[in-house]
Design a binder for these strands. Structure first.
Length: 263
DNA sequence: ATGACGCATCGAATGCGA
């Protein structure tokens, strides 16, 4: 059976990062790439350049902020693409889900740009909590309908202390709060596994580093980009890692891609 | 340290990210 490669990457503006995406795909010709923070409307999406690179795209864009897309080598069936959480009113384009052909049977891929939440106690934090609750309730149904499911993207949650460069100094601040971590655990409780932790990983493995104060050079980062796999997929996960290479390129996204291999 | 850096927005200063 042929291996299948899947990745997620918050590009912090696809307009600014298109060449990075193309360069990365040329070296990492994954079958599926989930993108977040497109920061462009659908009419500005670079379908042509990506098609020339061998990818079709399902897009859910928005002006200035947010925006998500799924790039796939194999054509998607458009009739079961879902945009945002059904029944949850949301002004932000944060979720796109689609079914992707795969060797062991179709995969349901749910790509999310989770709410940042700014600070505990803020209106934005309340929105993050409501959004996470709605996501969980929807995913319960989605998993029932599609047992072979991946949830991936920018979760904006560092699940454990080891996922932060400063778990003590940043305790109970955004990305580190107990409430956010409980929500992450509740997602695992649906029957999902954090693919990254299925393998031994280097200490201080992060997927995001602040642009300021030499954050990357000092490895002051957080692991907030994740790939969760449902129980039926777990035994097929052969590898999961963070690719720091594009974070070293000129004018990088502040996030690095997270990659997964299914056999 | 209500900072820093980077991106987007009708053109500069501000909102936002994490």
């Amino acid at each position: 059976m042929q291996a299948m490669k899947i990745a997620t990457w918050n590009v912090n503006s696809l307009t600014a990062r298109l060449q990075h995406v193309l360069d990365w795909l040329a070296v990492n010709p994954v079958d599926v790439l989930a993108l977040q923070e497109l920061k462009l409307t659908d009419d500005k999406f670079p379908h042509q350049a990506l098609r020339e690179a061998g990818y079709e795209a399902a897009v859910f864009g928005q002006k200035t902020y947010n925006g998500v897309a799924l790039l796939t080598r194999a054509p998607l069936t458009a009739d079961d693409v879902v945009r945002n959480i059904p029944g949850f009113a949301d002004d932000s384009a944060r979720v796109i889900a689609a079914t992707v052909p795969a060797p062991g049977g179709p995969l349901r891929v749910v790509n999310g740009y989770f709410v940042n939440g700014q600070a505990p106690g803020s209106d934005k934090f309340d929105y993050k909590m409501s959004w996470l609750r709605a996501l969980r309730d929807w995913l319960r149904e989605e998993l029932a309908a599609h047992p072979r499911l991946l949830l991936l993207g920018d979760f904006n949650i560092a699940p454990e202390d080891r996922d932060s460069h400063d778990p003590v100094g940043l305790a109970e601040t955004i990305h580190h709060t107990s409430e956010e971590r409980h929500h992450f655990q509740a997602l695992l409780g649906l029957g999902l596994a954090d693919a990254f932790r299925l393998f031994e990983q280097p200490d201080k493995s992060f997927s995001w580093w602040d642009y300021r104060m030499l954050g990357y050079q000092k490895n002051r980062g957080l692991r907030i980009d994740h790939i969760l796999v449902s129980e039926p997929l777990r035994a097929q996960v052969a590898a999961c890692g963070i690719d720091r290479v594009p974070r070293k390129w000129p004018k990088p996204s502040d996030h690095a891609p997270v990659t997964l291999e299914l056999v």
